[in-house]
Nucleic acid binder design. Structure first.
Lengths: 207, 207
DNA sequence: TCATAATGTGACGCATCATTCACTTTTGTG
DNA sequence: CACAAAAGTGAATGATGCGTCACATTATGA
């Protein structure tokens, strides 16, 4: 998109910013927003507290940047997965497969992100929660598009609105993975996309 | 269960305790654990701060009592719904209907409860999160029992393990209602149990 | 080499808030 | 009524932690 016309100094600052975010991420992921203080982030990132405030207006700002920047990457990957085919069933498989991959490789972030996006999040008074919800709705709308297309083409039975189908699928995936994350022994990871998708493809009562 | 052999005084104390919990609940539901101070709870419940500590060891204890006692009531209602029939399909309908009713009538608590049970909750260091998860697993196991029974009787197709079916259904209900709570205009409340259940009964690809 | 700017520092000020406890008020009883 | 026990009170305490700013260090370039 934007040409990386950055001076050495600017690149250096960006790198430092990333290091702060990474250190902060590890702490937040382990203990949650309210149980991490700026002193700890300073310590872990090996900067002074004052320096943190050269990069971020305040603690909340730092946290927001952290969540939203990672969210954007994940979001992009999932949208990409949907675009990688024109066959609705393959689109769904790609989506589930990519989501599986992201969950497996970024457990800590997923936990933090879901804590922020599900239910009411009272961590911050800011608009982070709204921003996350907006993004999630957009993504769901893309997923709903797949169902809408499949239904209008007659490939899918119209058992619910596309939006509800998208919501049902996505929340089911999330639930499966949250259980897996919390207790992998008893709740194995559904590696194959069809482990989730079959629930929606084949009906409980279908003959 | 236990005979209510309580003196006038004891009943009075129990009532007061309930009033404190109710005042605290309204505050927590609006602002979250970390954004409510004991001073506010005292003010709203019209007791002195010191008095709160006659009823609860500390703030965390108060919060735990609040969440768990309400949770128990809801849990009981849902278990009851499952027991009200021996026909698996009716059991599922009863479950979904009762859950709809609870969501509709206790939006504020549901938000608080889901914030506590989903993803990682870092509000408290205590074992509240574990306790909630344990309870949720038990409830899911009961729901899974319905699917297990339906499958072994040949009434349901074995499209996934009973536990996964239970998880898929329950998380889908939760997701539908969370969207409804956040934006009732665009995401109407699925009043009819079959609005959710049809997704699982009828397959997308069934002939 | 030296002056100036840019960058980095962390002790401290200030606010918040959970919890305590010495005291006051109310209640129950002889 | 008198008086002891129980209930209720809220100012004071101490701990925590965000964010500031006067100063120190490093980079730049003349």
């Amino acid at each position: 998109m934007s040409p990386p016309k950055l001076s050495r100094r600017e690149r250096e600052k960006l790198r430092q910013r990333g290091e702060i975010l990474e250190a902060a991420f590890e702490l937040f992921a382990e203990k949650g927003y309210h149980n991490v203080c700026m002193h700890e982030i300073a310590e872990k990132s090996e900067f002074a507290i004052g320096t943190l405030y050269k990069f971020f207006q305040n603690k909340e700002d730092l946290y927001k940047a952290l969540i939203l920047e990672k969210r954007d990457i994940f979001d992009g990957a999932l949208r990409q997965a949907l675009k990688a085919s024109h066959d609705e069933i393959k689109q769904l498989r790609n989506y589930v497969r990519k989501k599986t991959e992201l969950f497996r490789e970024h457990i800590a972030f997923i936990r933090l992100y879901l804590a922020e996006s599900r239910g009411a999040s009272f961590n911050l008074k800011s608009d982070l929660h709204d921003e996350i919800r907006r993004g999630y709705r957009d993504l769901l709308a893309s997923l709903a598009g797949v169902f809408a297309s499949g239904i209008s083409q007659g490939r899918f039975n119209p058992i619910a609105t596309p939006h509800r189908l998208a919501l049902a699928l996505d929340s089911t995936i999330n639930a499966f993975f949250l259980f897996w994350i919390e207790d992998p022994e008893n709740y194995p990871c559904p590696d194959e996309p069809d482990a989730v998708l079959d629930i929606f493809f084949t009906g409980l009562l279908a003959p």
